[in-house]
Every structure is written in C-alpha cells, then in structure tokens.
Design a protein around this nucleic acid. Structure first.
Lengths: 159, 159
DNA sequence: ACTAATGGTTATGAGTGCTAAGTTATCATA
DNA sequence: TATGATAACTTAGCACTCATAACCATTAGT
C-alpha cells in the first residue's frame, strides 16, 4: 500500500468509525437500559463462559482498571457476578447472571432491529462489500492491539 | 437482507467498530497531543471553512452542549477560535487557528504512519475490500443519523 | 411591547479510557 | 521461615464523550 493510499484510508477510518460508533451508541441508549457498547461486548463474551478479569481486559484490549470499573458498573446493574475460584485466591471470575443473559437477549434483538432498518436498503453487492470490509478490519485490528504495548499494563520495568 | 444476515452483521459491527475505535484512540493518545478522535474530525471539517456551532453539532450528530464543550476544550488548546459574525449576534462561528492547522497536520501524518504500518500487509484485494466496506458504512451511517431524532435537541415541544 | 423561537452556555450525571499507587495472595529463595 | 518479587485486583484522580435540564441572549412575529 502506498503512502497516499494509506493516508486516504487513514482519513476515512478516522472519519467513519467514530460516526458509526456514535450512531450505534445512540441506538443502544435510545433502546433504554444499555448504557454502552462495551457492556454489550462484555456480556457477549461472558455468555459463552466465565472469565478472569485480566482475560477480559486483554480480550477487549483495555487496561485492568478500566475493566474493573466496567465490571463494577455491570455488577451494580445485576448483570454479572464476581466470584472467587477455589484455586488462586487472587483472581476474580466474572460470570453472567440470568438477568444479564436476559438483558443481552433484549438488546441483541433491539440492535438487530435497528441495524436491520439501516442495512435494509443494501443490495447483495453492498452487503458483500460491507462484510468483506469488516472482515479486513477485524483481521487488521485484532492482530495489532494498539501500537506495540499490550502486554505490560504496569509501568514498564521501571527498574 | 434477511433477519439472520442483519443480525450477523449487527453483531460484527458491534464487535469490530469499538475495537477499531479503541485502537485508533490509543494511537492518537500515544502520539501525544491528540486527546480524542472527535477533535481530529472537528479540525478536519473546520480546515475547509469556518462553521456555526450548531452546524458542527449536526454534522457530527451530537447535541449542541456536547459540541459547545468540545469546542471549549479546543479553544483552550489554542486550536480554534470563537468569533461573532456581523449579522446575527446569537451565532458563534468557529474557525481554525494556525496552531490548529499545524496540529491537524502533525496528527494526520502520525495517524497515517501508524495506520500504514497496520495496513501494510494488505494486498490489493484486501485493500479494495476495506475501502468498499468503509464506503458502504459511510453511505449507510451518514444517511441515518441515529434512529429518527436529530432535528430537535431541545425538549421536544413539551406541550 | 410581548411572546415565541433560535443559538449558545452552564450544570449535572453516567460512560469510557488512562496512569499511579495501593492491597492481597502466591511463589521463589536464601 | 522470613523476605522480597510478582501477579491479580481495586481505588483514586484526571481527561474526554455524550446526554438532558435549565438558563441567557438575540431575533422575529404579531
């Protein structure tokens, strides 16, 4: 990819992604009860199986304190539970509650409905393009979690 | 687009967009001096020509108070100026300062560099897909600024 | 002149994200 | 066994996004 292409793509990403982000967030908000996309993703991940706090943080690519806060917010809503596993008493396992599952269910249906409205006018070609593009984004950004870091959240070696 | 397709796409969007968002934000942060993607977009828009505060708000799809705050932050950084036009003394025109232009320039180069690293491994096909997808996203989300609203930021008629 | 609508601002509250600075709990080792 | 490092979390403080409610000005309509 040439410099010019990179710049154009960069510009486009910096322009479009926040827009999509705001729109989606606004929809979730309007749907009531879902404060943020982050919570949605978290519930999604947790609905498969319980996870350690640190695992959640690195899966989502955020710092441990950030994840701890998000989880606290969700605990307060009654969507997840913090539990102590038998073995290592330092770790905290996060598990979905039935309430959390229900919320995920509701919000999924709602988001689906809204996005379906928006996506409805797309023809087959456009849909293919969209999915192709999303796939590329996933590959690119899942592989490169920020520029380098992401392995040591603490002060780096400090000595 | 069928329901199932809509749901899958919705899921994918809700998963990928925040990820990209976080990554990009982290990069801008790491680059120093750019606190948020929003400011970048604003500078971008304003670099073409000055705008009214309300226009900026509706262009970005955010509320007037939100925009007012963002602009205040940017004024404090010396990137933009509030000025009163001759005609209507209610309106505030926002204009970029030379400093703002310089910052935009720097950050563009920086974002470009980082994204170029990330995008480098893409071959022609992948790039095409990415751009196609972004194009679809733009069309879809630029046309549908949240679900309906976006025309009356004040209390809706209240009687 | 009086009221209504328009353009902005301030205040408050909930979220996301970060770093820095703790707390426990576990492990290695002298 | 103490001692010290490290790992997993939490707390506190800061900056930013976004929203609504409530408030000033200014302009326009009657």
């Amino acid at each position: 990819m040439t410099r010019v292409q990179a710049r154009d793509t960069a510009r486009e990403i910096l322009e479009i992604i926040p827009l999509v982000m705001r729109t989606v967030a606004a929809e979730l908000r309007a749907a009531g009860e879902m404060p943020a996309p982050a919570h949605f993703g978290l519930l999604s991940i947790l609905s498969t199986r319980p996870r350690m706090l640190s695992d959640l943080a690195s899966l989502q690519g955020v710092s441990l304190p950030t994840m701890s806060n998000s989880i606290s917010a969700m605990v307060e809503r009654g969507w997840v539970r913090r539990e102590a596993p038998d073995g290592d008493r330092r770790v905290v396992m996060i598990d979905v509650t039935p309430g959390g599952r229900a919320a995920l269910e509701r919000v999924t249906r709602c988001a689906e409905a809204h996005l379906a409205d928006v996506l409805a006018p797309l023809d087959l070609t456009a849909r293919r393009k969209l999915q192709g593009g999303l796939g590329v984004l996933r590959k690119v950004f899942a592989a490169a979690p920020a520029s380098g870091a992401r392995k040591n959240h603490r002060t780096p070696a400090k000595r």
